[in-house]
Design a protein around this nucleic acid. Structure first.
Lengths: 202, 202
DNA sequence: GCCGGAAATAGAACACGTTCTATAAACTTC
DNA sequence: GAAGTTTATAGAACGTGTTCTATTTCCGGC
């Protein structure tokens, strides 16, 4: 529609921005988002505040991320990638898929729970996303799925394994949300995840 | 805090409103919500529009439902109760929990998919709800859980059955959201639910 | 170096959820 | 049935996400 549409999409995808200045701007924006979210959660991520903190104009922020939800989900992807990389450098202990998946799940969950506000901001954005953020959502979903299939085995995952990974991802997210909205304690979450993984993998 | 706090809570809980006029007002509000949501989804449920259509003042709307999310989640509870009652009047076919749960799941899912906008509005409200809507959320969660445990057996559910019901509920919701945001087709949803229930009950 | 178009900036403007204010209507209680 | 209290009303006002406008800066090709 708009003449610069494809350019804008490239900006959103994020990886190959034309200039170094743009890559830096984008990074400043994501950093500002994460900082604000860490401090005050979803509500504290106000577009004017993000723009201020990242030292860009409001219009520029919207050129890079077309909505608050896009912004937060993209930041979630960034964070998950970090976690994934860290996980790749760890040897996951455990003899069975059951044990290994539980290990991964426990570790990431505890990691997120260490930063409740950030987690709240990201999960709420993720679950609130509408169709327009489909691409970002898919990116995050894939990351999650691969996180769990990798834990199950080193080989390429079977369809059944993928299905299991997806179920685990769904339950994981829903429990994270329950925790974030204070309807479940950290212990509840751990128990339910353990139970779920047991049902699926034992 | 405010002098009429307990009264207001009674209004929110919804069942025993002081006067018939109030019960009617509440019903008009929920009806208006469902009508608007059915036509245009979450975004079409605008508080001014709901108030107009229900023939109440904006302030009154807020006295009955303290936020848009409360309003939509309460309406979801109303709808789920309707579905549950209908289901109670049906004899669920199938010899195994697996078959019976799939039947219930399929029927409710198709019911929701018949009204995509309404489903979109309600699921988005449900997943976006924050701590302040905890009570309403719990009410809906319980409804969902009991829906599935009832399908599994007529007796009081075991802990394991409850756990399974909860996992199914999580997966169900997540797939509904995926469908609503057009990241999954109706067929995808049906397949994934079938797969999930198989993993859990077979 | 200079030109033309894309990108960035500052800030106004708009939409909708939410809150507030002032007034009127509807009830309770005596 | 009058006084006092709660509830409803109309509408202004406010906050934050989003869009728009006018202007300036940046960057690639000559």
């Amino acid at each position: 529609m708009s003449p610069s549409k494809s350019r804008t999409d490239a900006l959103m995808a994020g990886d190959e921005l034309s200039s170094a200045a743009q890559r830096e701007r984008r990074k400043r924006i994501v950093d500002a988002t994460i900082a604000l979210a860490s401090k005050g959660g979803f509500d504290a991520v106000q577009m004017r505040a993000v723009a201020d903190r990242a030292d860009v104009a409001l219009g520029t922020l919207y050129r890079y991320f077309p909505s608050k939800v896009h912004l937060l989900v993209s930041s979630l992807a960034v964070e998950l990638e970090r976690a994934q990389e860290k996980m790749d450098r760890t040897t996951v202990p455990g003899d069975s898929p059951y044990e290994r998946v539980l290990f991964v799940l426990g570790r990431i969950t505890r990691g997120l729970q260490r930063n409740p506000h950030l987690t709240e901001a990201m999960t709420r954005a993720f679950t609130f996303a509408d169709a327009s953020a489909g691409a970002e959502i898919d990116r995050v979903s894939l990351l999650m799925e691969s996180m769990f299939t990798k834990a199950m085995s080193d080989d390429a995952p079977t369809d059944e394994q993928k299905a299991i990974a997806r179920v685990i991802g769904d339950v994981w997210l829903s429990n994270l949300v329950a925790w974030v909205t204070r309807r479940a304690t950290a212990t509840d979450v751990a128990n339910r995840l353990e139970l779920t993984v047991r049902l699926l993998l034992k």
